[in-house]
Simulated assay, not measured.
Amino acid sequence: MNKKLLAAIFGSALMLAACGGGDDEATEPNDENGGEVVETQDAEKIVQGNCTSCHGGNLEGQGNFPSLTDVGSRLSQEEILKVIQEGKGAMPANIIEGAEAEVVAEWLSNKK
């Protein structure tokens, strides 16, 4: 009986291991940034941590800081990346850097 119980436990463990993971988000290495990998799902988190204090919690803009809710209809991905890298107006340069800046620029370019 111990062998059957051990076999059932072992079989269950193998099945759980085979089904585990569940993290199917695509990641892209970025060789220009030392092979750093940033997941696309992280773009929103990066924006929340770096942009909302000036652009508002919903990116609706506030004070002298423009709305980013439709920034993709005004600027291309490359132009957004340039603003992130070089700054503009009161926005400092390189507030987000490397692969994170590229992922954020892509994410914001889809805001139309």
Rank of each mutant, 00 (worst) to 15 (best):
M1R: 10
M1L: 11
N2P: 10
L5G: 03
L5P: 01
L6Q: 06
A8H: 04
F10G: 07
F10L: 15
F10H: 04
F10M: 15
S12T: 14
A13L: 15
L14Q: 05
L14M: 13
M15F: 14
L16N: 00
L16R: 01
A17W: 15
A18V: 13
A18P: 08
G21F: 12
D24L: 15
D24H: 13
E25T: 12
E25Q: 14
T27I: 11
T27M: 11
T27R: 14
E28N: 12
E28S: 13
P29G: 09
P29M: 09
D31V: 07
E32N: 13
E32T: 08
E32R: 14
N33W: 12
G34D: 01
G35C: 09
G35V: 08
V37D: 14
V38Y: 04
E39G: 15
T40D: 11
Q41C: 14
Q41I: 14
D42R: 10
A43V: 11
E44D: 09
E44C: 01
K45M: 09
I46Y: 11
Q48F: 00
G49V: 01
G49Y: 01
G49D: 13
N50W: 04
C51G: 11
T52I: 11
S53K: 12
S53Y: 03
S53A: 10
C54I: 07
H55T: 02
H55R: 06
G56Y: 09
G56S: 07
G56Q: 08
G57N: 12
N58C: 00
E60Q: 11
E60H: 06
Q62W: 00
Q62S: 01
Q62A: 00
Q62V: 02
G63H: 09
G63K: 05
N64P: 09
N64M: 12
F65M: 08
F65Q: 01
L68W: 04
T69R: 13
T69P: 03
D70Q: 15
G72P: 05
S73D: 13
S73V: 02
S73C: 01
R74M: 07
R74N: 01
L75H: 11
L75N: 08
S76W: 01
E78T: 15
E78P: 02
L81I: 03
L81H: 10
L81K: 12
L81N: 08
K82F: 10
E86V: 02
G89W: 05
N94T: 06
N94M: 13
I95M: 12
I95N: 10
A99V: 04
A99D: 07
E100Q: 13
E100Y: 00
A101E: 03
E102A: 02
V103E: 08
V104A: 03
A105Y: 00
A105L: 02
E106Y: 07
E106H: 09
W107L: 02
S109E: 06
S109P: 07
K111T: 00
K112L: 00
